[in-house]
Design a binder for these strands. Sequence first.
DNA 1: GGTTATGGATTTTTT
DNA 2: ATCCATAACC
Length: 793
Amino acid sequence: MPSILDELNEEQREAAATINGPVLIFAGAGSGKTRALTYRIAHMVKGERIPPESILAVTFTNKAANEMKERIRQLIGDKARRIWAGTFHSVCARMLRADGHHIGIPDNFVIFDTGDQSSIVKEALSVLDKDPKVYKPDEILNRISGAKNELITPQTYRRHRKGPWDETVHQVYVHYQRKLRENNALDFDDLLMETERLLREVPEVLKKYHDRFHYVMVDEYQDINHAQYKFVQALASKSRNICVVGDDDQSIYGWRGANVGIILAFEHDYPDAKVIKLEQNYRSTGKILECAYEVIKHNKGRAEKKLWTRKPPGDNPVQYEAVSAEEEAEWVATLIKQQVACTDFRYGDYAILYRTNAMSRVMEEALIANSLPYQVVGGVKFYERAVIKNVIAYLRVLYNPADSVSTRRIINTPTRGIGDKTIAELDRIAFARNVSMLEACKHIEESEDLQDRAKLAVERFDTMMANLRKTAETADLVTLTRAVAEDTGYLAHLEKSDAADDASKAENIKEFSSLAKRFQDTREDANLGAFLEHIALMSDIDQAEDIGNQVSLMTVHASKGLEFPVVFVVGMEEGIFPHERSMGDEFQLEEERRLAYVAITRAEKMLYFTHAYRRVIYGQPSQQRPSRFLKDLPDKLITRRLEISQLAKGSSLDREDTDVQETVVGGKSINVTEIMRRAQANQLLAAQRRVDTYEAKEAERAEQKAAAKQPDTSASKRTAPQSFSRRRKAEHIPTPEADLPSLKTGDRVEHAKFGKGMVVSVEGEGASLTYVVAFPNQGVKRLSAAFAKLEKA
DNA sequence: GGTTATGGATTTTTT
DNA sequence: ATCCATAACC
């Protein structure tokens, strides 16, 4: 009888067929992990007749969860809906809503985001009279989050503090946690920590889930933190049917509490675990995989594995040294443009990856200048825009009047004459009466030192909210959302304003309304609570779907899980990648290395690394050394173009090479050394042109800037752009036979046989200098510079 | 209550 | 260089 498992390779099949007992699947990049996983579930349900509702599949992202659900649905149909598949946070939220009351968590709790968290910490610091410059809110928040990930409660934190700074963290933590509960709110970390506590402290709840879930699967297990680990352990402790999937080489969230050690210790936790390695890669060509391995192999303590492929070795990845960040961007943009013009690649096949978001701007500028369509992935999140957060804050207060953090946010948005002083007074009343801020509004009368005007404003706000609440009780989501935008006067305020960005804010609100509509139309449980949870646990609207035919720009982190035919990794410099903040610490360097590994393994066919000889960082010009990760790549694997630093060093232009090699080609004796020397000279010449061009552009920029600032500041004030110290004019040296054309990408050429074409890229150096030329109707040809007769056309 | 000045920092961010 | 938050201003 044919089984769906026949469609898998041997290792995938083993992974999918082993359903009982603990299983650890090391799923390398591009090894068909999702396929193995979804087929595994399909096999369980269809082949083994396991009830879908007894399967729990946990992921980290909504995207992964949705993709898994959809692909399982394609395999087994609507039965897939009965599987519990979701993110850690959504699964936990669901459990807490159902059973949290056992540990004092009401079922209508709300989820606080980072902004809300920050507000509470700041408030705590002010209450405790601590200087927020010494105790930076973000740092404290990190500590609190870290503690929660380790299941350390405010009470037990006492034992973990080491010094006065920690003492403050402890105090803030206590205050913070109390505030959350007063607001009837949980933060992201609470969802995990409290669910773990629920399972640990309430046996009947644990039993309930043990009875329900006989099979537990966890994706991206290398990214799991301690709280998540304990949660999963608890759920799987009875059946021991636990299957975890991950790749320690792709663990890049250690700084967020993820602990790679957990996946590496799985076999220790379950000595009888079956370990399966998926090492066949279906994504990249051979050389790309080799590069990836050459980088990652330096990490210590990784589970040994090596990706392989049936694909051909493919082209050498290219390392390109640019003059500056601007030229780097320009090079990338032009190369993409030319390749799209001359090959079958389309814009959507390209990704530009960088280590830090700050690098996106210069790339964007170059892409705009060359009119290439592009999309920045993971920029400002829609739900995090201030306008949207304000609208959401209204909805949250309507759902949960105890939410004083949100009340504060909206009480004077749009401005309605409730200032700091009034808010402080409301705070006082709320504290004295032990009620929420919204409740305090009802007692504003008792305040003695407030003007009547302020009191009136508060009363009006209170009445408005009461009316909205009435609406909330009966109206559907869409109506309510509209009421919030309109009845509060917020939309009108934005629309009548003539500030430039307020129009787009109003647009955002309308967009939000249509999101509410979509939610209402697609969900059965389209109530306010569900909508708020959806928003809180959804980092962004699924933007990945409509990528379109555009170049994708994103951080390396954001690229995890994605793949592109052509990948550019830009800013491959010491201090940037690896980041300087990671360079002092071996552990962090290993994570940077994994990050580099992730970047490399995104590429299917072609991979480019670029770095700039010099770059302006924080406004300061500085010289950069190429990333150490590039040094890990053996020369035979990568084509390096490092002319700029060769120029700067004074280069080998005039160095006499001692051993003269001769080769006989076509009956003629050729002095190879000479040819190499000339080819190199010509490359240096081209490089010098690049430098000159960019220095001219920089000078122009500086001039414009000076002119813009002070219309009549003369040239004397202008500082010359940093130049190469031992720079020399490279000469163009003609060869005896023919002029060796020093071509660069984009040059139009003519070939005796192929006719007219365009140089797509230049590879290799010296005698192996190769031009890749695209000829219309003839395709793309690789031609040796030394031997092909190419004329500039 | 909204606007400008100043100081400070500036990696990554699945939920 | 530039963005952000808070502070000092009209």
